[in-house]
């Protein structure tokens, strides 16, 4: 099993209130499997994604990537895991504005020390960014920026790809194009995909769906 989450709970304190976002969530994802995580706003989808990606740690429960619990790992160890094995595509793209498109695509792979020039060039070409490589993110449209973010995520050939509403900021046509490319390339890398979405039609294109409601898998 690529990902195994058991009894994961997470509570946030906001002002004087405590908010239990996740209440004992269990989740499995096999290698190369694609899974859509759906649910209403505030149901805990993004929180679960962040915990799985090692961006945050759960209050209780375990999250195993290929059999190793990442919840108990140090900050540096989780950072290493994010660099090499996990790719995250954010809704807000989160590109580095001062790097060119080419440098943005290669960035994570360079961090991981695994930059494969041919693979990166292929990604650029497949994502339709050949003519944009020397440009800066601010010179691109939203759809193009998200394609750069996808390229950056897949350049490292991660075992697990996490995507948080990757087309949430795009119009319908752009979203369709971007998702087509995204799923095609994820398939080529044979990575497991955990995708958070509100879109039922998008969720239906994935292997499996899990619905989260008020912090519990339903």
């Amino acid at each position: 099993m690529l990902l195994r989450a058991r009894d994961v709970s997470k509570t946030y304190s906001i002002a004087d209130q405590t908010l239990q976002v996740l209440r004992g969530v269990d989740l499995d994802l096999a290698a190369s499997e694609t899974l859509a995580l759906t649910g209403e706003s505030g149901s805990g989808k993004s929180t679960l994604l962040h915990l799985v990606g090692g961006l945050d740690v759960p209050d209780a429960g375990s999250i195993e990537i290929e059999g190793t619990d990442i919840a108990g790992r140090s900050d540096a160890e989780r950072a290493h895991l994010r660099r090499t094995d996990i790719g995250v595509v954010f809704q807000q793209f989160n590109l580095i504005p001062s790097l060119t498109v080419a440098d943005n695509i290669a960035f994570q792979a360079r961090l991981a020390g695994s930059a494969d020039k041919e693979w990166i060039a292929y990604l650029g070409q497949t994502l339709g960014l050949e003519d944009q490589l020397s440009k800066y993110p601010e010179q691109l449209s939203g759809g193009q920026q998200q394609r750069v973010a996808i390229g950056r995520t897949l350049a490292v050939r991660p075992k697990l790809v996490l995507a948080d509403e990757p087309t949430g900021n795009l119009d319908e046509a752009s979203a369709q194009t971007v998702m087509d490319l995204f799923l095609k390339l994820v398939g080529e890398t044979r990575a497991g995909l955990l995708l958070v979405t509100h879109s039922k039609s998008l969720a239906s294109r994935l292997d499996r769906n899990v619905h989260l409601s008020v912090g519990v898998v339903s």
Binding site: A76, A79, L81, R82, Q108
Partner: peptide
């Protein structure tokens, strides 16, 4: 700040 957040999210430890 956004750039630092992204770099950290991509696996560079804070220290």
């Amino acid at each position: 700040r956004p750039m630092i957040r992204t770099i950290r999210a991509l696996g560079v430890p804070l220290n």
